[in-house]
C-alpha cells in the first residue's frame, strides 16, 4: 500500500482482491441444518439467542446443502450415517468447510475401541477443517471453532487456488 499513499481520497481503502473476497466469505458462513446426535443440542444452543451465532454472520442455517458453505458434523457417525454425510458433503458447492464437533467425530470418542460400526472420526470420510473436541463441547468451544474457521477462510488465497486448479485440470487434459 505504500506506493499508493495519498493516491486516493481519505474515505477509500485499498485491499488485495483475495483479502476482500476472504473477508466477504468469512463474514457470511452459512452452516447447514444438520445434526446427528447429542452434540446437535449444543449446536442448537449456539444458534439460539444466548450464544447468538449471528454475531459472526453464521446464524443462518440453510435447509439444503446446495446453499451451505459449512457443514458442522455434530454426533457419532456410524457406518450407515457415513454414506449420508458423504452424500451431503458432495452436494455442497465449493468453497465448502467442515467442522468436526465432538469426541466421536474427532476420532471415535468412547466408541474408538469397541464401536463395531462407528467411523473413527469423520475425517475418514470427508476432509475436516476444524476439530472441536469435547463430549459434547460447550457452545463456547464451538464458537471458538467457528472463529478459527473464519481466520482460516480469511487467509484463503482465492486466485492462487484457482490457478492451481487450472494447472491441475490442464495437466489432466494433457495426460
Amino acid at each position: 500500500m505504500g506506493l499508493l499513499n495519498n493516491a486516493f481520497p481519505d474515505n477509500a481503502l485499498t485491499r488485495t482482491v483475495d483479502e476482500a473476497i476472504g473477508w466477504g466469505r468469512k463474514s457470511s458462513v452459512w452452516p447447514m441444518t444438520f445434526g446427528i446426535a447429542c452434540c446437535a443440542i449444543e449446536m442448537m444452543a449456539v444458534y439460539a439467542a444466548t450464544f447468538d451465532l449471528d454475531r459472526f454472520g453464521a446464524g443462518v442455517p440453510r435447509a439444503t446443502p446446495r446453499q451451505s458453505d459449512l457443514i458442522i458434523v455434530p454426533g457419532t457417525v456410524n457406518a450407515k450415517m457415513a454414506v449420508r454425510v458423504k452424500r451431503l458433503y458432495d452436494q455442497m458447492a465449493e468453497p465448502r468447510y467442515v467442522i468436526a464437533m465432538g469426541a466421536c467425530v474427532c476420532g471415535g470418542g468412547p466408541y474408538v475401541k469397541w464401536g463395531y460400526n462407528t467411523v473413527k472420526g469423520v475425517h475418514k470420510i470427508i476432509p475436516v477443517d476444524i476439530f472441536v473436541p469435547g463430549c459434547p463441547p460447550r457452545p463456547e468451544a464451538l464458537i471458538d471453532g467457528i472463529l478459527k474457521l473464519r481466520e482460516k477462510i480469511g487467509r484463503n488465497d482465492v486466485f492462487r487456488r484457482r490457478q492451481e486448479a487450472k494447472e491441475q485440470m490442464s495437466a489432466a487434459y494433457e495426460a
Binding site: 457406518a79 450407515k80 454414506v83 470420510i125
Partner: peptide, 14 residues
Amino acid sequence: SGDIPLELDATPIY
C-alpha cells in the same frame, strides 16, 4: 462397511 472404513488407522477415503 462397503466403502466406509471403520478402523482407527484406516486411510481416509479421499
